[in-house]
Design a protein around this nucleic acid. Structure first.
Lengths: 334, 334
DNA sequence: TTTTAGCACTCATATATTGACAATGCTAAC
DNA sequence: GTTAGCATTGTCAATATATGAGTGCTAAAA
């Protein structure tokens, strides 16, 4: 545990650096700590020895190291109270009753991007506990049909079906009725097996033509099961900090955001404490050594997903954690 | 009209510059034009006088001016034959029968982004000629319902309806049946007025409660009418050229892509010749003086939209025009 | 009239030199 | 344990210098 003065010193350096992005010299902290610059230098070099601070060159001021940020986040930082203005903006989203849950989540994270200038990411897991409410088919022309699947949580997915063989609408209706009869109420990831073992045998008894239809539906369901939402909300403001004053660095970051693997890896990052907001500073995450990823999982009614914010290591940790907590709570309370 | 040698010279300079991004000196063109560097210099200074070439500084090689690119595009360039590989990639999209038209368009433009490294933009106008095929409501709980609207072209839109008052499902069914009875076959932008003048009077006769329901539907339809698709497909590769070796320039461009107004302005750019691919070089478009916008409109079955590519002025004009023509044709042939 | 060789000139780019400055570490005194 | 003082270190910006690619122009050749 650090002495109270060292704690205060680290706090001042981290917070000052987060604001200004400039190395902090000993002199600038004299008044705040009411002691001379020499004393501060001594303390600074101790903190550096411990690995909490770094210098950009031999005679520069100090900058927080990764470990320094970590210590700050773990032991010093207090979650910031959100401003009324910020809360207001978010509440207009949460209070909007005609938004579907997934839209609420996406829109609220858009607001967070706007409020923080960091990139927000929503990774929506395909909703496990959704049960089929209804299946419907609407004909477009002789060969094309729209299959629509609706779940009890309000998810609607549709897909075009192309059926080469000429099939009568009445026949299709029959198959749809059959499917509806058997799978309404079935959780979405059990639909495939239920189709295979309960519905297919019945169809098998009928004409072979219907097998085509069955296959089309089967494809629609597996498609729906496997679909997942990913929404990345970049903001070019994030790149305005002096740490990105280099075209190559910007390009490096942009490439990562374009890389779907990279985005999905954010979701997979280990996550011990369920239900909390986790912070991955620099090399702590697989994303990028110069960036911080902060994320939380939400879960409501069996619908699960991950909310993440990505920004420079020099991040407003207090504000960001407060925001994510707030969003998570509001989503789960819905 | 330029002399054939000057035409050839301009062509060489433009194409070389597009490849290398470096000012072209007179010496490097001697062999290609089989004359001495001095002759080329004389011709070059003529072309500069005409405003087709520029120098970056007094003793630098020549670079095409905006007017130079324009002349190249209008009089010199021949649309490039697409490579078999590129065609193949696109064909896998166009041949996929289970993609809806809008997805086909978006996916094909994603491929174009990939093939060219420029940013592709799809601006889908809400499809005027779509007619309502069916309206459906599925209850979620006491207060929430999903309204689903399906058009004859295969568009499916859904929206959550929140109805505070307690309403019986049977009543809802009645209203839905009524709406279906009156608006099936109605073009989507006439639905609102038809609802107002044909459906509302009938509902008016009934209990007042149903007015709530009517309003909910009315909102759903106006929502659907006004929705439009915008898909921007950025690629960080575009920023790899040396013209973007400056962090501020990158930021400027990124901001433009984040700005929805800016994107929509691309659609509004004047467009005389219907049905062709138009090129806006630098200041010719409102987008950005350092960028070229190239776009075309598509129209099929009353569904309209704009396809655009945005890249540096130093753009592979021949390949890009060929690609856009190809995409447009394939979409419209669908 | 057109083309070319030759030469002086210009400007970008790269590298080295310098001084001012902002910090530091260290030592010795408080 | 704290502080003043001082030599030291490295950044940053300004300045100088050399190099080289490319030009314009002129006068001679084709």
């Amino acid at each position: 545990m650090l002495s109270s003065r060292r704690t205060e010193l680290l706090k001042l350096i981290v917070e000052d650096y987060i604001k200004t992005a400039r190395p902090i010299g000993s002199k600038s902290l004299c008044t705040a700590l009411s002691c001379s610059s020499a004393t501060i230098r001594n303390e600074m070099s101790e903190l550096e020895e411990m690995g909490l601070l770094e210098k950009t060159h031999t005679s520069s001021g100090r900058v927080p190291s990764e470990k320094g940020y970590r210590y700050y986040v773990d032991h010093i930082m207090k979650p910031k109270e959100l401003t009324g203005e910020d809360v207001l903006k978010l509440q207009t989203i949460f209070r909007n009753n005609s938004l579907m849950l997934s839209d609420t989540i996406i829109k609220s994270m858009e607001i967070v991007s706007e409020l923080t200038n960091y990139t927000s990411i929503v990774l929506g897991k395909s909703s496990k506990n959704n049960r089929i409410s209804k299946v419907e088919v609407v004909p477009l022309d002789k060969n094309n049909f729209i299959a629509i699947v609706i779940t009890d949580k309000g998810y609607v997915k549709h897909k075009k079906m192309f059926i080469k063989e000429k099939i009568d609408i009445v026949e299709i209706k029959q198959v749809v009725d059959l499917i509806n009869k058997h799978i309404i109420g079935t959780p979405i990831d059990e639909v495939s097996s239920k189709l295979e073992y309960e519905v297919k045998p019945i169809i098998g008894e009928e004409i072979k033509q219907k097998e085509v239809l069955y296959n089309a539906f089967y494809n629609v369901f597996t498609d729906i099961k496997n679909s997942s939402n990913v929404k990345v909300n970049r903001t070019s403001n994030m790149l305005k900090g002096p740490e990105f004053n280099d075209a190559d660095k910007i390009r490096k970051i942009l490439e990562k955001f374009e890389n779907k693997d990279m985005i999905h890896r954010i979701e997979e990052e280990e996550d011990d404490e369920e239900g909390s907001v986790r912070i991955y500073i620099g090399s702590e995450s697989e994303f990028d050594d110069d960036m911080t990823v902060i994320k939380t999982k939400y879960s409501i009614d069996g619908e699960e997903g991950t909310l993440a914010l990505v920004g420079p290591k020099r991040m407003q940790y207090d504000k960001v954690t407060a925001l994510l907590h707030y969003i998570k709570e509001n989503i789960e309370r819905k």
